[in-house]
Simulated assay, not measured.
Amino acid sequence: MTGRARPLPETPAALDVRRAVRNWLSEFAPAGVVAVGLSGGADSLALTAAAVAEAEVVDALIVDHDLQPGSDRVAAEAAEAALGLGCRAARVLTVEVGGAGGLEAAARRARYAALDTARDGLPVLLGHTLDDQAETVLLGLARGSGARSIQGMAPFADPWGRPLLGVRRAATRTLCADLGLRPHEDPHNSAPEFTRVRLRMEVLPLLEDVLGGGVAPALARTAEQLRADNAVLDELAEKLLSAATDGESLSIETLATAPIALRRRALRAWLSAGGAKALTDKHLRAVDALVIDWRGQGGVALGGGKPGTRLVAAREHGRLTLALGR
C-alpha cells in the first residue's frame, strides 16, 4: 500500500541526491512512475528517499540473494524502510544464485533477472554512484578492449536507470544519517576476494594519494566523454555497415577503405547480429585481418552457433561471410 512521503531535510547531502534524481527523472522518466532496486545499503536507501520526494510513484524491489544467514530479515527490513519512506509498494524477490562465472557475476545475473521480471514495465533505478563509476572504468581499463570498455555505466540503459552517477558515495551515507536510517552493511562489500572490493579499498585510495586527489571524479568524467564519443562513432559505423551490406555478407572493398575505428565497430555489430557470442579483441582483430591483411588464411571460429557446430567468419570472392561450420 502507498506510504506518505517522508520529508527530506535541507542538508547539502539531501539537496545533492535529490537534485540528481530530479534531473534524471526530467530527462528519462517525465511521467514520474519508477521502481527502485533497494538492497538496504546506503546508496539505494538514499536513492529511494530522493525518488519518493521527486517522483509521482515509487515501487521498491528488494532482491534476497539468500547467500547469508539472516538475508531474509535484511530484505524484510529494507521493505519496511521503503514503505516508511513513502513507497507505494515494496516487494521482496528471493533468488537462487548459481555458481557459473563466479559468485559475484552469478549474483548479478540473478539480481537483474529478478528485477526485470518484477518491474512491471517500469524503469528500475539503481544506486550506482560516482565512486562505482570510477571502479567500473578501472575494471574496463584492465580488460583492454578499447573505448567501449572504459565508457562506464550509462545514466539510462533501458530499463536500468542510474541517477546517482554524479553523486559521491559519501553523500548517500550522509543522507541516511540525516534521515536517521541505518543502512545494511553487506559483508561482501568488504571481502577482499572480490576484485571490485580491492579496487575500492586499495587501488583507488592509492591512486588518490599518488596523484594528489580527484581521481574518482576524473575517471567518471572520462567515462562520460567516451560515451558521447562512442555514440557518434556507433552512428557512423552503422552507416558504414549499411553501405557494406550485400545480402547476408559484407563487401570487402567497402570495409577496407573505411577508417579502422569505424570498420571494427561495424564488424562487431555485424558479428553480434549474426549470433556471435563473447566477442573478444582477439576475435575482432582476426576478422579484421580477413579484410585488410588477407593472405589466404582460413576462417575465424567464433563463439555462438549450435551444438556440434561453430560460427565461422570467412572471406569468399571479395565478401565477408558468416556461417555455421564444423
Rank of each mutant, 00 (worst) to 15 (best):
T309N: 03
V203Q: 10
A75R: 04
R148F: 07
V95G: 07
A78E: 11
A243V: 04
S39C: 10
V197T: 15
L204C: 01
A31E: 14
Q151L: 05
A35L: 07
L206W: 12
D59T: 13
A20D: 06
A90T: 15
A154W: 08
R263G: 01
G212P: 03
G247Y: 00
V63I: 01
D281Q: 14
E224Y: 02
A82Q: 08
K306F: 14
A228G: 11
A78H: 02
L211E: 09
Q133N: 08
Q151C: 09
Q297G: 01
R227D: 10
A118F: 09
L25K: 02
V215Y: 14
P307D: 03
D246N: 10
A113N: 07
K239M: 09
D158T: 12
T117W: 14
E104M: 00
V287E: 01
L324W: 11
W270A: 15
T94C: 11
L322Q: 12
A42K: 12
L45I: 02
G146I: 08
I62H: 12
A14R: 04
F156D: 01
G84L: 15
T2P: 05
R263H: 10
G214M: 08
A314Q: 12
A218F: 11
D59I: 06
T117C: 08
T11R: 01
W270R: 15
